[in-house]
Design a protein around this nucleic acid. Structure first.
Lengths: 139, 139
DNA sequence: GCTAGACCTTCCCACCGTTGTAAGGTCAAG
DNA sequence: CTTGACCTTACAACGGTGGGAAGGTCTAGC
C-alpha cells in the first residue's frame, strides 16, 4: 500500500503520515526498491487510532503514551484512564475560558445599539482599563 | 517611558509590544538618542485595548479593525457590533467542538474500570474504526 | 519504446502568537 | 569604573498542518 492509499484508508493526509513518522509516533515503514513507503493494513489501523485521538483533542505527546499503552498487552487500564482524565480536564479548562470570553462579548454585543451612531459599549469596554481583567485571570 | 515600563503598565510583554509594532498594529514609537523606544500614556492605553481584546479571543487582524474603528470618531457602532458578533460566533463554534470532544471522552472515562486489568474501553474506542467520527464531522 | 499524468521522494517555507536565547549597547547606582 | 538591570536586533522554537519546488517512478495509452 502506497502512502496515498494509506492516507485515504486512514483519513490522515500523506503529509501528516510523514510528519508522524518524523517525530517518531509511527515507525519507519518498509520501502520499495525505488524508495516508496509501503504500508500494511495494521499500519492503517494505527493511523486511524491516531486520527481518532487527534479528533478527541489529544496532543501528539499524549497520543504517543496512548499508543504505547495500546500496544502493551499487560497495561493497566488505570494508566489510560489517567491520561484520558487529564485530557478531559484540559478540554474543560479551555471550554470554561472560551465560555467566559463568549459570554462577556455577547453581553457587550447585546448592549450595543448597532446603528449609525458612534457610541459603542464594546469599544468602550475594550478601552476601559478599569476592568483589568488580565489581573483577575480571565486569561 | 521605557518599553519595560509600558509592558508593566499595560500587561503586554515587551516582546509582544515589539511584535505588534512589527506587524503594524501599533505605530513606530519615538526613540531616545540611544535607540530606546519611548512610550506615552496614550500608547499604554492602546496596549491595554489590545490586551483586553486578545483576552476576549480576538485575533490580531480583527483587533486591527477594532483599533481603526476605535480611533475613528465618526464610525458607526454597527460595524463594531458586526465584528464582535462574528467573534462570538467563532468562539461558539470552538466551544461546541470542544464540548463534543470532552463529552465523548468523559463518557469513555466513565466506562473504564481504571484498575489493574488491561481491558479498557477508551483504547478500544480509539482503535475501533467503526465510529469513523472523522467522516461524520466531529472535527 | 515514448509520452503524459498521477503518483512518490526530500527539502524548505508559512501560518499564529508567544517565548527563549544570544550578542551587543546603555543607563543608573554604588 | 564596575555591576547589574535594562535596552537593542536577530534568529529559532513551539504544534500541527498545508503549500510548493525540484526531481524520481509508475502506469496507461499510443
Amino acid at each position: 500500500m502506497n502512502i496515498g492509499e494509506a492516507a485515504n484508508a486512514s483519513g490522515v493526509s500523506a503529509k501528516m503520515i510523514r510528519y508522524y513518522e518524523s517525530v517518531g509516533l509511527i515507525p519507519y515503514p518498509h520501502r520499495t526498491h525505488s524508495g516508496y513507503r509501503v504500508y500494511r493494513q495494521e499500519d492503517v489501523h494505527v493511523l486511524r487510532f491516531i486520527r481518532r485521538a487527534r479528533d478527541l483533542g489529544f496532543p501528539v505527546e499524549q497520543i504517543r503514551e496512548l499508543l504505547a499503552l495500546w500496544q502493551d498487552r499487560s497495561r493497566a487500564s488505570s494508566e489510560v484512564k489517567g491520561i484520558a482524565r487529564r485530557q478531559v480536564e484540559e478540554l474543560n479548562a479551555r471550554i470554561v475560558q472560551l465560555v467566559a470570553m463568549r459570554d462577556t462579548l455577547r453581553h457587550l454585543v447585546e448592549h450595543c445599539s448597532g446603528d449609525d451612531r458612534p457610541s459603542c459599549p464594546i469599544l468602550d469596554d475594550l478601552a476601559d482599563a478599569a476592568h483589568d481583567s488580565h489581573e483577575q485571570g480571565i486569561i
